[in-house]
Design a protein around this nucleic acid. Structure first.
Lengths: 341, 341
DNA sequence: TACATAGAGCGAAACGTTTCACCCATGAAA
DNA sequence: TTTCATGGGTGAAACGTTTCGCTCTATGTA
């Protein structure tokens, strides 16, 4: 039904090889170039990527596996990933793991069957075992956001520990000593941020009562309940660190329902995207992750690996030194922190 | 590098045809079946979908084009779509149009080049022209959420008009007469909801002052500002209809920052997902869209079309009667509406 | 003039499947 | 005994590209 290269051959009288050369940007006489272009136009010809893929053994398709597609963080990253991949002619096959390691493993196998040229993975599992089939097939993988303990895996992440450290430092610099943390220990990013917070508190010799440590998961509910509980304490904190977007959302809701004001009664600093800073009042001080940059670097790194693979540049057994790219989250100014004492 | 059907042939002594038959679920002697299975296991064989696709001219891939991947509504729909497609062995290639009609058109062409078997589109353009190349190639398309004026296009959507009508009716039934609307006219769904609201107000002979009509877009900002303005009016409304998720988010934030309480001072009813009902207090009354059902039906319909296409069941020129599936949004109970007067 | 060189084009083989038409037993029905 | 269907199996031709090695012509160089 659809036009093929052979139709163009019949129309122009040129050979298949020449037409193929044209399609792949080779040199030919302007005259022939013209002919081919006209044929393509009138025939509505489009390259059949499956045939091309069969011979080049490249699908020009990247598998993307995300821990949860239905949240804003993931959505934003996917948006940027899509952009950069498209620029390079790659399509993204996106699979959602719904925070389920079993589903995640299935996703990886599924994409492998689809012959993707590479994968970008935001993992849910803490153990890299599920990537074994990918590595065995020498398909390049780049992790995002969450590193895994395997020396063969590249990763693009954010300096969670340092950024969280700096965030709490800011609170301390403003004179706060009663600092509460609402964060998560269910994922590595949360753990790292927590570590950063605690490190600073230790460095500054600031004691944190048990009741100020609200460690749960990255959910609206956890943020909401934790903030409610904090506000009920006899000795309320004067400042709170909020570990991610969902936690911020929940915590701010709880605060707004209370009689307390930010920053007069409570200073806030948050970690994550900046959409929220536009809507919350006063504007929140935030450690902002460079999502766009992360996506760009992940794509760049993955495409580099793919290229290395094709040119056999990789060492014996497809082993190369893995790269861990750590991008800095920057503190964006706002008005949610008041001087204390 | 990777094992092929030919390796299996060499290992088992069977013919290519027989092995292919096995792969596609044909009948063979248990003995041979056994042999093949062992060969597959030891060779780590996996079907090369590109070769298969080339001869069957099926990629087992569906293109999904969404107006904006970075919001929760889209994310949730994508999650469900992915599930159902996967069940049928299809992968999803997702493209984000970033609310830009130009990008949308590019996305469609790009996916066409990738030889997708069908497309699911949540469109940004109001004009169906950008789907022309798809229709010309006889690739089935199913629209979601937003119908387009073209008799050849199937669509799965929600009864926005009726649900909005019912939502406002509920407010009226509770005795409210000063009802404000925060909604959008920039997309067809918003327009339909608006129409539903206005129809009821007309039926009940309830007058709406200009200042109660907050028509903008489906954004947090619009919800936030509109609510602020409504609360500043000398004659405040006693109830407000909130047109979608983002508007709810913004409006509730603004309300929480104000001295007014819901539902004592202001009754609320919202349109969209139910994540928010868990977090807002009091629990919001919502017209909930059956997102899961929508995804299921869209996939079912699309796969039906693909099947019809293959079996040549479609009428001359690939014309069949299009289907517009309208699913009911249901009002979910909550506590955000108080009796009035 | 002779000779190398580069550019443009060509034919044919390959990529890894599916599928068509055909073959051969085997066993049941006539 | 012949005929016929049936189940399991086969070889070879597709599918639509890319790519390898070759030819031919024109151009520049000695």
């Amino acid at each position: 039904m659809a036009a093929t290269i052979r139709d163009i051959k019949n129309m122009t009288g040129l050979s298949l090889a020449t037409i193929s050369k044209y399609l792949n940007g080779g040199n030919l006489l302007p005259e022939n170039r013209e002919k081919i272009e006209e044929a393509i136009r009138t025939l509505h010809y489009e390259v059949n990527e499956m045939a091309r893929g069969l011979v080049t053994s490249q699908s020009k398709t990247i598998g993307v596996v995300v821990f949860d597609i239905s949240n804003v963080f993931t959505g934003t990253v996917l948006q940027y990933l899509g952009e950069y991949l498209r620029e390079e002619g790659y399509a993204a096959m996106i699979c959602d793991s719904q925070n389920d390691p079993v589903l995640e493993e299935q996703n990886v196998r599924f994409l492998l069957g689809k012959k993707v040229d590479g994968m970008i993975v935001m993992p849910v599992a803490q153990d890299p075992g599920f990537l074994e089939p990918v590595l065995r097939n020498h398909i390049p993988v780049v992790l995002m956001d969450r590193p895994l303990k395997d020396s063969r895996l590249d990763c693009v992440k954010v300096n969670n520990r340092e950024a969280a450290y700096d965030a709490v430092k800011l609170l301390a610099d403003y004179g706060h000593r009663r600092i509460a943390l609402i964060s998560a220990d269910t994922v590595i990013t949360g753990q790292e941020r927590l570590e950063g917070c605690l490190q600073l508190l230790k460095d500054r010799k600031i004691r944190v009562p048990r009741s100020y440590m609200k460690v749960g998961d990255h959910s609206i509910g956890h943020g909401y309940r934790s903030m409610q509980e904090l506000l009920k304490l006899k000795e309320r904190p004067t400042a709170v660190f909020l570990g991610n977007f969902e936690i911020i959302l929940g915590a701010v809701m709880a605060l707004n329902e209370s009689p307390y004001q930010c920053p007069e009664d409570l200073s806030l600093i948050g970690f994550d995207d900046l959409i929220i800073s536009n809507l919350s009042k006063p504007k929140l001080v935030l450690a902002v992750q460079p999502l766009r940059k992360m996506a760009e670097e992940a794509v760049r790194l993955l495409l580099k690996r793919i290229d290395q693979n094709r040119n056999g540049t990789d060492k014996e057994d497809g082993q190369y030194e893995h790269e861990i790219l750590v991008l800095p989250a920057k503190i964006a100014e706002g008005k949610s922190i008041a001087r204390c004492g």
